[in-house]
Design a protein around this nucleic acid. Sequence first.
DNA 1: AATCAGATCCG
DNA 2: CGGATC
DNA 3: GATT
Length: 906
Amino acid sequence: MSSLDQFFSEQADRMSIPDEDIDSYVSRITSVMRTRKPLYSSALSQDGSDQSSSAPPPQESPRKRRRIADSDCQVQVSGPSTSSNSSESVQKADASAVPAASVKRKTPEHNPDSRTNKRLKADHTEASHDGTVHAPTGPVKDNAKQSRAQRSKKVSLPSLPQTELGLEIKHAAGSGDGNTRSTVRVSSDVAGAVTKSTDVDAKMVLQHAPDGSLDTSRPPITEHSRKGQSQNIKLIKTGNSVTRVDTSNVTTPFNSAIPSSSKIGAIGPVNEESTKKANPRTQATTKKSSSKKKSKEKLLPEQYAEKIMLAMAEKDLSKRKPETMYLKDMRIFFWGGDYSKASESTMRKMDILVDRGATLLPTFQPDQATHIVCDHIVTKGSLLAAINLKSLADIPDHIPTLKWDWIRTRDGKGRMARLHDHAAFPDRIHFESPDGVLDLRLGPREKKRKAFLEAPSKSEDNTEHSKISEFTEDKVARSRIGSSLIRPSDVVIGKPGPSATKESKSTSEEDPLACFYEQARAELAAEGPRNVSEYDSDTDGEGVQGSSSMVATKHGGHEAVQKRKFMYACDRKGEQPSNEICPNQDVIDMLEKLKQIHDTKGTADDKWRVLSYNKAVRGLRTYPKRIGSVKEAMQINGVGEKTAQKIMEIINTGALQRIRYENTEDVAVVTLFQGIYGVGPSVAHKWYANGCRTLDDLKNGKFGIKLSTAQRIGLKFYDDINTRMPRAEAKEIFDLIKPIALEIDPKLFVEIMGSYRRGKADCGDIDIMITRPTDDGKTHVGVLKKLLGRCHERGIITEDLNIPENWSDLENMYRGLCRRDENSRRRRIDFLTVPYVHRGAALLYYTGDDIFNRSMRMKANRMGYSLNQKGLFANVIRNPSDRREKLDDGTIIASATEEEIFKKLG
DNA sequence: AATCAGATCCG
DNA sequence: CGGATC
DNA sequence: GATT
Ligand SMILES: O=c1ccn([C@H]2C[C@H](O)[C@@H](COP(=O)(O)OP(=O)(O)OP(=O)(O)O)O2)c(=O)[nH]1
Ligand SMILES: [Mg+2]
């Protein structure tokens, strides 16, 4: 989730200012050879031919985004305030537990050589590779197919530069060292829809030359219209749910068999036990096929609730003893965390509720419910999604949020337990005083929101507002209004001065509401065809400077840069941009949820859907108006028919049936596990299949789970790692590190990259790039190691997640954790060292964002080039038969400066 | 119906 | 090689 | 899932 937030802000200004740098590095050579990589053909079809032995899910994954649903925005205030539920506890526990168990690095149990061997082979290169290497399971046949298709395609491709990406782009201005990066944006609007005029963001815009082709490429309007129409109306539910939902997509999870490691011990027995509670899917650990299709009648939880309530209505209650009906006057909304089909456990619990006399509400209705009861596994985010509210603070105060335990806990006299002993979430607890008065205690974040909602008029900032309370207002109504409305937020913007940075910033950052504002502008996304954009000429003074900087050439460049850097005082500005709050923020939130669900699955299909959702969200984020129709939605950049329909469903009903349908326990748990650094879909599903459900299970090694070194650290600092830091903190940490690097070698070129350089208000991590001019014949080899050592001594870097294997390479990647001081949270930090000649391409790469990079690389391919962090290559010859291995790397066309690359790619 | 970025590091 | 991350 |  957090990724969403990030994006918003990110875009705000990419032009930020880089700061300084430092450091040293190493050189590596070998890497070059290995360009080719074989990937197994993906299993194209999902058809059933399974290979019993091992399933190779292909995939190249898009990077895992920081997930965990709500955790991100939270509190990050200083103290260990409460954070998202479980995680915190874990952390604590961990702290103690982990050390004890600290096994530190595990020995290289397997043959150490294997790796090297591989490497050798790779270097070797050779076509033979194919045969030798993957001999084992290979889906060879697929290859053949692919290849052939591919080949043909390839030929034709080069000629058209369509733009998928069109352009979004940003680009860079700065000379190699330049710091400023301007953005080019092509506007994406099509039919006139909006012209957005105001964006703050781009400082300078370069115009892309839109090829003629572009124009033509988007014939769409008409086309769209035709498509668009059909559905505008899908059904929507009202009282009862019945909507047609497309159940398709979202493939079933990984199912892969349990790898050898897991099977080891416990599994056998454990697994069986666990399965009873797990949903059916998990059982099939061994084979995929079995589980998935066993579809009997599946009912949505709400459908089941409705069904049993009806059944209950027909029974004669009079014969029951009143004492057994202890839930009699309660109107309960129960949430088991399963969106799709009601799990056994959910149904059983619903049965109990009804049996005890409760009125079970199939859907949450604020005006009717008296209690909300959640299964233990339910997270705050899951519940909020289910009831379609944005914050716990939006739930009417009189409705307590309780855990299932509360239902079953009664004292000897049959009285129910105290509410606060069974609160579902630490951020929303109802304390009962002896006299029966309830005192609602909210977490800090909720308090803020509540205060805001109740007293909208605060001089300070405004905020949000957007979608607020749904229960009070109907979305529909709101949506309509939205289109015409202006954002309330104009006011906000600014924090005036540039100065005040950290404090003010932190505040804003912390404020949960702040998330909404961030927004961003643009980027653009445009991929598409079209567009023309105009320059946004926003060259203000600042922009000008930036441009000049770009001009600078390499070496002069960096010096110049530094100076310049200071000049820019403006960093703030970039961030600001925001003026507009996204009119469709609620839509974005829902799409992100859906995206998360797909991200959990790990299959190839879902991976691509995740990519699509990312693109769609990007387009939505910059869309200035509230969307009013499917047709309108389809004009937006990465939005197609399916997404457009979903958008309208969200706008019209405030929710997506699809989300309910797909969001099951496994999704919640897998999402939780994926929040651990080093844990992706495969591992998370494996653990889930083995019976793990909580972070504590993992921590305690239950179900035979073994954690890698990085995973152990990731679990230990789960909250910290999943919490984004204020931009100011990133700078502070960088400012600690840079001098250390320069001390090692004053000629080092050290810059802070990633989201910081793009000007985002909050950063998920600190990305530092290090290189060094080679004028004097020296390089940065060895600097990184030295720098890391010093940072460790100073207590800045606290843990290592990954360290480069070859310290002597010029290109290295380091990943670890650091902290500003002892009272600060740990933050993720990455160092990238690159050969000086590759600095332009490296800056481009490391500045990102990821979607931008992928789009731009794709564009390069279409133009017959190949782009990576080392440079832009031409004459790349790809092996026609085997996937895309490059037979010839061709020549480097550009790599020294970002601008150089941009120019060639248009 | 084929594509969807390209690379490093771990085990 | 496959998984996870950048 | 969107685009070619
Ligand atoms: O799949 C990916 C992930 C990242 N990057 C590049 C772009 C990105 O900007 C940079 C740094 O990665 P990071 O994960 O730190 O992303 P970010 O853009 O800095 O965002 P965040 O604020 O989450 O750190 O690496 C890619 O090219 N592909
Ligand atoms: Mg980053």
